[in-house]
């Protein structure tokens, strides 16, 4: 895309006709001229409210209005009020920097400069601001978030306790209270009276009967929409819960094996799946395998 194409697409000029471009230039110059004249007059007559010259606000608006008015009349199309941005630039440089250096390059002039840049180079500016700048900012906040979290979880519980109320941690923080509290420690999976083998072909042990596929599973609902493990403590909670869930799934499989009349499981597999995704993560922990009746082993009751 050439520079001229870029200017055309930015300034809403959709025609290749040189006459249109000339009219557009005239409209912009006209708007700018009116804006500058109004700015000079306003300064000469000292049209100020609370020390602020009204030209800072009115001149860009007037310039944009006049430009649009003329371009609509002669082209039946708008040129995008470019003179308004030019006037913003003039007012910032003249009003805030040249005539009143005590104000200097303050927040307003900085914001206005960003608007001017955004209007001149919308795609490049939007990319730099929304992708690059905000991306870097989010990384920086990624560093500071644990610090603010630490501060929050130190100060807020203390203040809540002082006011006699109970502190309820926000749901994004993983605690033993808000994550899978229905789980409990299960006994050793090998104490259910079932022989669990992860191998598919039992060696030196005879299978008397193949009963079929059975599964034991546990679903952990997760209310933490923003699921992220950030501290060692959260990591420990999660790991403990998953171990408990796995032992419960094996226990449920053992019960299913007993019901089916087997005394062993071959090709045992343990699966950890996540379901739900955006609607809220749920964890599905399943223990599954082929239930068999081993020869020479007592049948569980």
């Amino acid at each position: 895309m050439s520079l001229l194409d870029s200017i055309k697409s930015n300034f809403y000029i959709k025609h290749d006709n040189p006459k249109d471009i000339l009219f557009a230039a005239i409209s912009i110059l006209f708007g700018t001229f009116i804006g500058v004249v109004s700015y000079i007059l306003s300064f000469k007559c000292n049209l100020a409210i609370f020390g602020w010259n009204i030209a800072f606000v009115l001149s860009p608006i007037l310039a944009g209005y006049c430009e649009t008015f003329l371009s609509k009349k002669i082209m039946d199309e708008t040129t995008g009020a470019i003179s308004a941005y030019l006037l913003f630039f003039v007012t910032v440089v003249h009003g805030f920097i040249l005539t009143n250096p005590t104000l200097g390059f303050n927040g307003i002039s900085f914001g206005v400069s960003l608007i001017i840049l955004q209007s001149a180079f919308p795609i490049a500016f939007n990319y730099l601001f929304f992708v690059v700048f905000l991306g870097i900012l989010s990384y920086i906040l990624g560093i500071f978030k644990p610090l603010t979290d630490k501060l929050y979880f130190t100060v807020v519980p203390f203040v809540t306790k002082l006011s006699g109320r109970e502190f309820k941690p926000p749901k994004y923080k993983l605690t033993t209270e808000n994550f899978a509290q229905n789980l409990y420690e299960e006994k050793n999976p090998n104490e259910h009276g079932i022989l669990f083998l992860t191998s598919a072909e039992p060696y030196q042990i005879n299978v008397k009967e193949y009963i079929g596929l059975r599964e034991g599973y546990v679903v952990i609902p997760n209310e933490n929409k923003l699921f992220e493990v950030k501290t060692k403590q959260e990591e420990l909670i999660l790991l403990t819960r998953f171990k408990e869930a796995k032992d419960m799934a094996i226990k449920r499989l053992a019960e299913s094996v007993k019901e089916a009349g087997g005394n062993g499981v071959i090709d045992l597999e343990i699966d950890y799946n996540i379901v739900g995704e955006l609607a809220g993560d749920k964890f599905h922990i399943a223990a599954k395998g082929i239930v068999v009746l081993f020869e020479g082993m007592p049948q569980p009751r």
């Binding site: 923003l226 699921f227 992220e228 493990v229 999660l238 343990i270 699966d271 950890y272 799946n273 996540i274 739900g276 995704e277 955006l278 993560d281 964890f283």
Partner: peptide, 9 residues
């Protein structure tokens, strides 16, 4: 087995 528990995160 390696399971990603983070979901969308």
């Amino acid at each position: 087995d390696y399971s990603n528990l983070g979901g969308t995160m």
